[in-house]
Write a protein that binds this DNA or RNA. Structure first.
Lengths: 186, 207
DNA sequence: GCTTTAAAAAGTAACAT
DNA sequence: ATGTTACTTTAGAAAGC
């Protein structure tokens, strides 16, 4: 009997500030930022607290990545809004934040023979020549799980921790169904 | 009407030209890799199936063609690595891999991962090893696979490690560097895999 | 499709010590 | 012969090529 665990590793969110931005001005107030419109249309900005990376676009839309919690994303957006206000940006309404992707690392607490897993599990990919893990796609909730021979996993594509758990449970039920495991305790 | 006829002719023309191009690509790559004719024909059959299933849409002929050759090699148990296919293909490894996964899924080719044992013959020949050593390497690999070791590891590295161990055990030792070279892996990989096999299988080597 | 961001898993690789 | 760094895979958004 083993305990299955999941740890959040990264959260990606898209944000709309509902205001157009002059990136040339934004560059000057962002300490560690990079802006090469030739290679990428947005400003790449990093915050130390909360520790995230932001992509700022002239449309007033953002992408926030590297966060470990939704609070980190909200904090980073508030911080940016504060900096932008000092530069003269006006905000008519509250920013809209959409969580787009959450990445978790985890452990099933048991080792697997991936050749056996790949043979028994339908709809999975396993090409050890290219990548050491089995790639398993869950339709509902939509997510992808990478399963390694150590029993460690990576779950990405889920939009909430609940969804990630549901996806992992589906994989566990499939593994159980094909006699690849014993039992768990969540 | 006339216009419809012309369109049909144009379409079949393009289709024929594409097929001819694809077949010449298969010929060229198979020749460069010194692959047997039946293998090339197997790849051509796969390509024709892909065309019939409309799998070429949005994909390059070069990519699908290379993927068919890669798949045919695996089906025939005379695998070439993606790197070897890439060397003679006109698209990169990433594109070949994508096309391969796509046709494998759409044509229901349930190809198991390349078995390290399938590399033993070719690697051993390039190393000038005896049949006895080949058999020893295969024996080691069967045991390792049965015990579920090596899952997650690349088949070439595992095959190289087994050949290295077998060459030492049978008294016709090859260096890790020589084995690594024919297997297209680094010496570090051969070392890591052979150490793992040696202690998980309880083999004692006198080096 | 590509470009840029972040992060984990395990294997392999490239280059340095 | 190690050690460090870096690339493979997964997902998703942003604007533009």
């Amino acid at each position: 009997m083993s305990k299955v665990k999941l740890r959040i590793e990264n959260i990606v969110a898209s944000v709309d500030l509902f205001t157009s931005l002059d990136l040339e001005k934004v560059i000057e107030i962002c300490p560690n930022s990079k802006y090469n419109p030739e290679e990428f249309p947005g400003i790449i900005c990093r915050f130390d607290e909360p520790k995230v990376a932001l992509l700022v676009f002239s449309s007033g839309k953002l992408v926030v990545t590297g966060a470990k919690s939704v609070e980190d994303i909200e904090g980073a957006v508030s911080k940016l809004v504060g900096m932008l206000s000092k530069i003269g940006a006006k905000f008519q309404r509250a920013p809209q934040i959409d969580i787009q992707n959450m990445v978790f690392s985890g452990d099933i607490g048991m080792e697997f023979n991936l050749d056996a897993v790949a043979l028994a599990l339908p709809n999975c990919e396993y090409e050890p020549e290219q990548f050491p893990g089995v790639i398993y796609r869950v339709k509902d909730p939509r997510a992808v799980i990478l399963l390694f021979s150590s029993g460690k996993i990576v779950c990405s594509g889920a939009k909430s921790e609940h969804d990630a758990w549901e996806a992992v449970k589906k994989l566990l039920h499939e593994l159980e169904k094909y006699g690849l495991t014993e039992s768990w305790e969540f | 009407r006339l216009r419809k006829w012309q369109r049909r002719i144009r379409v079949s023309d393009a289709a024929e030209r594409n097929l001819a191009f694809a077949l010449s690509e298969l010929d060229r790559m198979a020749a460069q890799l010194s692959l047997p004719r039946n293998l090339k024909e197997m790849a051509a059959v796969l390509y024709r199936k892909a065309v019939m299933e409309h799998l070429i849409r949005g994909r390059s002929i070069e990519g699908v063609t290379a993927a068919c050759l890669y798949a045919a090699c695996r089906m025939a148990k005379i695998p070439r690595t993606l790197d070897e296919i890439e060397e003679v293909a006109r698209v990169d490894k990433k594109e070949i891999g994508r096309s391969y996964r796509f046709i494998a899924r759409e044509l229901n080719l349930r190809l198991p991962p390349t078995n390290p044992i399938d590399y033993v013959g070719r690697f051993a020949d390039q190393l000038g090893l005896s049949e006895r050593t080949k058999r020893k390497a295969i024996e080691i690999l069967k045991e390792a696979i049965k015990k579920g070791l090596t899952s997650g590891s690349g088949p070439m590295g595992v095959a190289a490690a087994a050949l290295y161990i077998a060459s030492v055990l049978e008294g016709e030792k090859r260096t890790q560097r020589e084995v690594a070279e024919v297997a297209h892996v680094t010496e570090v990989t051969v070392r890591n895999r052979y150490k793992e096999l040696v202690d998980k299988l309880g083999i004692k080597l006198n080096i």
